[in-house]
C-alpha cells in the first residue's frame, strides 16, 4: 500500500471540508425554526397588508419543517419605513421577516438615502402579489374620462387626494399624471386608500389614483366611478386601459407586497421560509379567501421578486430624475 501523497491529503481535506460544510448546512436546515418567527406588518392592524399577512400565518406555519408559531407584529410608522428599517437592522437568523410596501419603500429610500435601509441588500423571500392601479372620480363628478382631466388641467391644476410623501399612492398619482400629461396638485395626508377615495367622492379633490382592488367596493356602490385602469387590458368593461391611453408603462404603477428578511440570511433558512410562503399562498384556504374578497394574493418566487424590484427601482428612479423633489 502506497503512502498517501500530499495531493491525496489535500484532496481528502477538500472533500472532508465540503462534506462538513454541507453537513452544517443540512443540519441548519433541519434545525430551523426552533422558536417563534415574527412576521412584521409595516402598518397598523386592520388594513390590506395586515389582513393579507394574518390570513397567511396559519397555513405558513404548517409548511415549516418544525412546529413554530408565526407571530404578526404591527410596526406602524413613517409610511412603513420604520418597520423596514427595523427589519434591515435585525439579525439575519430567519426569526424576523416582513412584508414591504413597494413602490412606497423605494420612494422613501430615494428621499432619505440608505440610512434606514437598503432594499438592494435585503433578502427577498417572495412576493404576495400585485395590484394594478387606476383613476377614479366621484360618482357625480362631471369628469368622464382621462381626456376630461387633461382638458381641466389646461385651466387649473387637477387636485388629486392621496396619502403622504413616500407612499405608494402618492408616487403612483404623481407618476401617472405626469405620464398622462395632467397638471396635478396633491391634497395629501389622508390615512389610507379608503379615506382618500371617499375624499375624492366628497369633492375634497377632483380625482384619486389607487389600486383597483381598493376601488371595487366603492365603485359597485356608486360612490366613485373608475375612469382608467393601468392594466395592459382592462379587467373592467368600458374603462380605458394603459394600451388605450397610449402609455403601456402605466402597468408599472402597481402595489407590490414582497416579503423580505434582513441582509445576509443564510440560504438554507431563506429556502425554508420562501417555500413555506409559496405553499401558503397556494393553499386552498388562502386561494378561496382571496377569491371571496377580491384580493390579488398570488405567489412569485424570490427570483421573480428580485426582478420585479429591479424593474420598479429603475422605473421610480427614472421618474425621480424627471420629477426631482416633487416625487
Amino acid at each position: 500500500m502506497n503512502a498517501p501523497t500530499r495531493r491525496d491529503l489535500l484532496t481528502a481535506a477538500g472533500y472532508g471540508g465540503t462534506a462538513m460544510l454541507l453537513g452544517c448546512s443540512a443540519g441548519g436546515a433541519t434545525l430551523f425554526p426552533q422558536r417563534d418567527i415574527n412576521f412584521i406588518i409595516p402598518f397598523a392592524p386592520g388594513g390590506g397588508f395586515d389582513s393579507y399577512v394574518r390570513i397567511l400565518l396559519e397555513p405558513m406555519q404548517q409548511f415549516l419543517p418544525h412546529k413554530s408559531n408565526i407571530i404578526p407584529l404591527n410596526i406602524d410608522g413613517a409610511g412603513g419605513g420604520k418597520a423596514t428599517s427595523q427589519l434591515f437592522h435585525a439579525r439575519p437568523d430567519g426569526y424576523n421577516i416582513s412584508v414591504v410596501s413597494i413602490p412606497g419603500a423605494i420612494v422613501l429610500q430615494m428621499l432619505q438615502g440608505t440610512a434606514g435601509y437598503d432594499l438592494n441588500k435585503m433578502t427577498w423571500l417572495g412576493n404576495m402579489g400585485r395590484d394594478p392601479y387606476g383613476i377614479a372620480v366621484g360618482a357625480d363628478s362631471p369628469i368622464k374620462s382621462v381626456a376630461d382631466l387633461v382638458a381641466l388641467s389646461k385651466k387649473r391644476p387637477v387636485k388629486f387626494t392621496s396619502t403622504g410623501p413616500g407612499s405608494t399612492g402618492r408616487a403612483g398619482t404623481l407618476i401617472s399624471t405626469e405620464m398622462l400629461g395632467i397638471r396635478s396638485e396633491i391634497i395629501a395626508g389622508y390615512k389610507g386608500t379608503s379615506e382618500y377615495l371617499v375624499a375624492a367622492a366628497r369633492g375634497d379633490g377632483d380625482a384619486a389614483v389607487c389600486s383597483l382592488t381598493a376601488m371595487n367596493s366603492l365603485a359597485k356602490a356608486k360612490v366613485i366611478r373608475i375612469i382608467a385602469s393601468f392594466e395592459t387590458k382592462s379587467s373592467i368593461p368600458g374603462v380605458a386601459d394603459a394600451t388605450a391611453l397610449g402609455q403601456p408603462d402605466l402597468v408599472q404603477i402597481s402595489q407590490l407586497r414582497p416579503v423580505a428578511a434582513p441582509p445576509g440570511l443564510p440560504t438554507h433558512i431563506k429556502n425554508v421560509l420562501s417555500t413555506a410562503l409559496d405553499k401558503a399562498l397556494k393553499s386552498p384556504g388562502v386561494v378561496d379567501w382571496a377569491q371571496r374578497n377580491g384580493a390579488n394574493l398570488t405567489s412569485e418566487s424570490p427570483e421573480q421578486t428580485v426582478q420585479a424590484l429591479k424593474e420598479q427601482m429603475a422605473f421610480i428612479g427614472h421618474w425621480k430624475k424627471v420629477m426631482g423633489d416633487r416625487l
Binding site: 390590506g48 379608503s194 367596493s217 359597485k220 356602490a221 379567501w289 374578497n293
Partner: peptide, 9 residues
C-alpha cells in the same frame, strides 16, 4: 376582512 366581509357601502 378576515371573515370575508368587505367593508364598504
Amino acid at each position: 376582512v378576515l371573515h370575508g366581509m368587505q367593508p364598504g357601502p
